[in-house]
Write a protein that binds this DNA or RNA. Structure first.
Lengths: 222, 222
DNA sequence: ATGTGGCATCTTGTATACAGTCTCCTAACA
DNA sequence: TGTTAGGAGACTGTATACAAGATGCCACAT
């Protein structure tokens, strides 16, 4: 098949590939996903494609209308902005719980991800930077030991990555500094500070987003 | 087929039916889900069953191990308790945003759901009570106008329903009173109060849960 | 010119078939 | 008695086939 590398199941490979294409914009918002064509393009049968579509629909990347077919979901500016409200609540909680449950292994893992991200930035590997950014946020969620939190954060963070890639809203070195300070607060076990820094980080991301889409928030008092 | 009623697609019917069986405990934790047998039992082919399994796996109800098969997820007491942390964050946010965006239609809808729940309680229709409880919480999420919030809340609330059904932790009339006061705070547009009441409601639910599983929380300072 | 009915085509939904892998039992051997 | 090789059965992964609904175009009528 066209998909490279060692794989477990075609279904998983297809899911990853479709998700990647959506995140990078290779598959545009609203684009129709015809099972036959996707299957042929990926060199698989329709079955793995169909199962992938269900998964990505559950994650909110694809909209399915029975009998009519699947399309890449559309992402309005409002929907993009709304996501930040959810992120602040969830990632604030995640940072707090991660700080509460701090361990050297966790701190190491977070710092290592930040190192990798810095390297990727210096090498100009943009797509990898975005992936590592998401991985860092997810690692915070996983280090809480709260399995459902981690489970729900994964699609949320991927969606956040999508929001940024779709609006061409990039964040500069500020983001890295914010990650680092969050990491240290977690390592220090300072729950309040960790939550505050996570919330501030997401709020800063929202400002970048709003600037990119050229709108003002209607609720500046958040 | 065995599944009654008018349906759009078998896939959706199967998903609903499997979810229902998991929520009611008809399908027990850890129980193996053999595609062939499920398909035969529901009178459909394996394809709709497989697609359903992917959806329910994404929702966290089913665990899938490639080449080994699918099982109903296991829910430890710890995982049950952890869910309440997420719920407090998310439902607190939902209540706040619902209050901010209040409308007569929203208030009507919430009150109507509470009425139905009261009727179901009086008629002793337990399963319906649980469904209406979930529906109320979801309606709060939907009335925020934040589509992603509503999307992520749905599986979360279904999981919460599962947690309660699995631990035989029922809540008495307190729950109804708490819903009512939350409803009024939202209708009044009092953001702080709405959030506080939602958080308090979930916290009360957690106490019921902990009492049912006979454990003490390790973090009474939340 | 315009609206409408019907047919051809495309696409999804569902079922069936086949292949590969995992499990478990059995039996032979140390 | 314990251990391991082998093989039968069971189940998942993937592909293909068929059924049915949706779309769009064209001819025909007005």
């Amino acid at each position: 098949m066209t998909l490279g590398g060692a794989h477990q199941t075609l279904r998983d490979e297809v899911t990853k590939e479709l998700r990647r294409r959506i995140l990078t914009g290779e598959l545009a918002q609203g684009e129709r996903l015809v099972e036959d064509r996707l299957a042929a393009a990926l060199g698989v049968s329709r079955n793995p494609v169909r199962e992938s579509i269900r998964v990505l629909a559950a994650e909110g990347f694809i909209q399915v209308v029975p009998r009519l077919g699947a399309t890449v979901a559309r992402l309005s500016a409002e929907e993009g902005e709304e996501l930040f409200d959810v992120r602040m609540a969830i990632e604030g909680l995640a940072a707090r719980l991660a700080a509460r449950k701090r361990s050297p292994a966790t701190a190491d893992r977070l710092r290592r991800l930040l190192d990798q991200a810095r390297e990727a930035v210096e090498a100009g590997r943009l797509e990898e930077v975005a992936d590592l950014n998401t991985a860092f946020h997810l690692a915070v969620g996983e280090s809480t030991g709260n399995s459902y939190l981690a489970l729900m954060m994964k699609p949320m963070l991927q969606r956040a990555q999508w929001v940024f890639s779709q609006t061409a809203a990039a964040r500069g070195p500020h983001s890295w500094t914010e990650h680092l300070s969050l990491c240290e607060a977690i390592a220090a076990g300072d729950e309040d500070e960790a939550q505050a820094r996570a919330v501030a980080h997401v709020a800063a991301a929202r400002r970048s987003f709003l600037q990119a889409v050229g709108r003002r928030t209607k609720h500046p008092n958040d």
